[in-house]
Write a protein that binds this DNA or RNA. Structure first.
Lengths: 332, 332
DNA sequence: CGGCAAATTGGTAGCGCTGCCAAAAAAACC
DNA sequence: GGTTTTTTTGGCAGCGCTACCAATTTGCCG
């Protein structure tokens, strides 16, 4: 059951049909170089008549530099990454760039393999999440000569371009906020931090900030696997079973926090008087719950947009800090 | 600030370094055709030493048929599509295919333009949402000779391959369920149905089924813009302001339904005794709310997986019905 | 109307790889 | 040892397009 491509119309056939040279057709189609209005019309007519679709594979091979942008992202389940893609894709489409992607599942080894596979397409840029990569990945990317964009994490040395914000700062501000609100018996519910290094950074900064104010994290519950509402709910349940007298819980992100929030609703635990909840990401859904979730809103779509703009503009290496916004909400 | 590609290692250089012919290197690298173990080692050593990364652009151009799969999806905000991509991407990666995508924003005109742009990459397949497309899109896709996969909607004629389920059946079963539960004063809260034709189909089948049981939809509230939790909340609030004596509300999807659910929680409206809520999609979050959401679970990830498998296997044209599952939950 | 600059055009050599074919080497056979 | 097979190999013509350059046409001036 082999699939065969139908014979395709080529630029040469269009040239023939229009009675002009190949290079002329190429110029007209790319609107590059000079040609008369008359020629243009004849070419476009032939294109229309034959139903010609330019072959970008051939075009890319012949020219220097492609218009592909490769995304190597950890996950598609975590809305963070679709959000980034969304921002980037809008900008890229406007500029006739094409996005290609693959998903690492938070596995650095897989990231390396997928990045290698991506480089085979000779993209204009490779966009990766965070700034922790294997040595092999870094070496390969450096050697490729294509632009590298690291997204969503500014706590580290950028290879080329970095766009995002500081996760450490986010952890710090979260802790500072909870302390300011008077909470002292604070717990943590998180997901697999070895894989999600950005959540790990937030957590360690969070703890350091508590320390700096002579407060210790009272208890923590780390769940295996990815973040999810279900895991958040389960995590808080377990945490409270072990340590009942907490007054606030910091979650690894909003998904987890919403799970915790639902647990409290279900169990009749008063929020925030009996227990405060704080998340991370500022998902829209957290603004529509009966009590708006206290969290940190991150510029995910903007991260994608800016990253794409810098690539389109071929900007010099730089780190762009888009910051984040603490939302007081009503759960803390 | 023009960016220049660094000189890249080519297959010819590897051949030279390994002291073999170009075609031999090509055979070894693709593990295709015959070559001795000794040759293999020498080639691999040269590849390693020079840090050679094959150029898939050139490879694709030279060979027939590419390993690109193009996704033209309506949105990345609606988790449905990232879910489909997730399922597909896992299968494609295993088979050394590469996914490329673009986002139409539910705009058929944009779909046509983006599909055209995609075809320029000569993909092995184009995957689209639903089975409603402009005439131009259909004509172009047909002429391209590449495989076409229509996802998530089986209520229509498939161009080539279709994978998903019937949205009409989903609407029908939703109505039947609510009727069976004894609800008679039923309302609807939805988002822009002209753009999201699948939601439109569910809604019209829902109404038809009510009709068939001598029940009329009592009230409806359609919000402009995309579906969101916020809009669901707002929609239900408006609906109830106009029509207070409803006993159940059908939402265009789970995002909207969750918004409605939150509204009830906030307003102290007892669920389901005072008001029942029914959604669509079966999002994980709906299973973690204090009361599990009554909804229909759709096989989104599986849709992506199966679609990708069919393409990888070059399966003949067919429609694959993956069905869906009605989750009784506790809100209806 | 000649003469020169500017605007248009066409020819063609690659881009880096694969696929085909024939040549060479190795293995098998009588 | 001489063939006949079989396995390995290398050469090279494209894939469809762009970039460069040279040729041609057009426009403009005195």
């Amino acid at each position: 059951m082999e699939f065969k491509h139908q014979p395709t119309v080529t630029l040469a056939e269009v040239a023939e049909a229009a009675g002009v040279g190949e290079s002329t057709v190429s110029r007209v189609l790319r609107n590059h170089g000079s040609f008369s209005g008359k020629t243009r019309e004849r070419v476009m007519a032939a294109v229309e008549r034959l139903g010609y679709v330019p072959n970008r594979i051939a075009g890319t091979l012949a020219s220097t530099g492609s218009r592909l942008v490769a995304f190597v992202i950890p996950s598609l389940s975590n809305i963070v990454f679709p959000d980034v893609l969304r921002g980037a894709s809008a900008v890229l489409e406007e500029n006739r760039y094409q996005a290609v992607f693959s998903v690492t599942d938070y596995d650095p080894g897989k990231e390396e393999a997928l990045a290698a596979a991506m480089l085979a397409w000779r993209p204009a840029a490779v966009m990766l999440a965070g700034c922790e990569h294997t040595e092999g990945t870094v070496k390969m990317l450096r050697a490729s000569g294509c632009r590298i964009v690291e997204l969503l994490d500014l706590d580290g040395d950028a290879l080329d371009i970095a766009v995002g914000f500081s996760n450490r700062a986010a952890g710090r501000e979260s802790a500072a906020f909870l302390l300011k609100q008077g909470y002292r018996r604070i717990g943590y519910v998180g997901h697999d931090l070895n894989r999600d290094t950005r959540a790990g950074k937030r957590f360690s900064s969070f703890c350091e900030t508590l320390d700096a104010h002579d407060t210790q994290l009272v208890a923590r519950e780390i769940l295996a696997g990815a973040s999810s509402v279900e895991n958040g709910r389960l995590g808080l349940e377990r945490l409270l079973a072990r340590t009942a007298d907490l007054d606030a819980v910091y979650f690894s992100n909003d998904d987890m926090a919403l799970g915790g929030y639902f647990h409290c609703l279900a169990e009749g635990i008063a929020i925030p008087s009996k227990l405060a909840i704080f998340g991370y990401n500022g998902l829209d859904i957290g603004r529509a719950t009966p009590q708006p979730l206290s969290t940190i809103r991150t510029p995910r779509v903007a991260t994608g947009q800016i990253a794409a703009q810098l690539i389109v503009a071929n900007a010099p290496p730089q780190a762009v800090d888009l910051g984040f916004e603490l939302i007081e909400g009503a759960t803390a």
